[in-house]
Design a protein around this nucleic acid. Structure first.
Lengths: 137, 137
DNA sequence: TTATTAAATAATAATAAATATCATTTAGTA
DNA sequence: TACTAAATGATATTTATTATTATTTAATAA
């Protein structure tokens, strides 16, 4: 297993598959989507295992939990980045802008009472698909 | 009731108290915190009513739902702003920077596939209180 | 390679969070 | 003041998440 994660944990099949799935599906899957995806390879995996591992791997810093419209989603992308979020359907995409990260961190230096270590900007709007659906109605 | 919200809804005591509470408590309260707060004035309010109204008022655009560490929180501040988030305790504070909003929106113009209407930057770090607690250990 | 052991899993039970139901009450309007 | 659609409170139901436990497994060392 890639030693990107040198975390001191047991690399069970279940964990490896969950991590692999999330690396191959950058669309911020939900618990159920992870479960369904991983089940294609490990047909006998328990949903409790998925829950426990998503929580565990997040605590260990191998995953990040995000939330759109009250729904938990997970991602394995640790390169600092931003998010494009559709207010209609909840779709979430990664978006890169080194420029914006730098700008934000410069502003962060002036903040008192908090020691800021990272930033991420959410861009809210409507995705192409939803915009086209709305036109048709 | 302030006509800031010209939304076409019934202004029941319950709704007014929930909105008032959230305007007076900008610390992004959870469902339970809203329930406990509002109950001081409306001792007979049902928790289901709090749930239903937080959802309803969010759909109507009078509230915004945010989420820290898997916990839903609500706010009534509609002036575009950013968030300072403590990775230790989950504390969340508003932070204003017109500058950063402008910069982000300029970047948003270049994004394809999404029509962006607003942005908000999250600043992650550690709050004063948590930093001091860590020192002591 | 095999034995050992702490930790992880699967299956299921238990909790907690959120929503639905429905008889009663109420805000907004005539 | 009366009317009515909508909201409420109380509770049941559903869904999401966590805990329990017997069994299995990954990592280590013999």
């Amino acid at each position: 297993m890639k030693p990107t994660e040198k975390a001191d944990i047991k690399y069970t099949n279940q964990r490896v598959e969950i991590l692999t799935f999330l690396r191959e599906h950058q669309g911020h899957p939900t618990v159920d989507e992870v479960y369904d995806g991983v089940r294609k390879k490990l047909t006998r995996i328990s949903k409790a295992t998925v829950y426990k591992n998503l929580k565990f791997l997040t605590e260990k810093g191998l995953l990040e939990e995000v939330n759109v419209k009250g729904v938990s989603r997970f991602e394995a992308n640790f390169i600092p980045h931003h998010h494009l979020i559709c207010r209609e359907c909840g779709k979430m995409e990664d978006f890169n802008s080194e420029q914006l990260l730098d700008y934000s961190m410069k502003i962060a230096e002036e903040i008192e009472g908090f020691t800021i270590v990272s930033t991420s900007t959410n861009f809210y709007g409507i995705c192409k698909k939803c915009r086209e659906c709305k036109k048709e109605t």
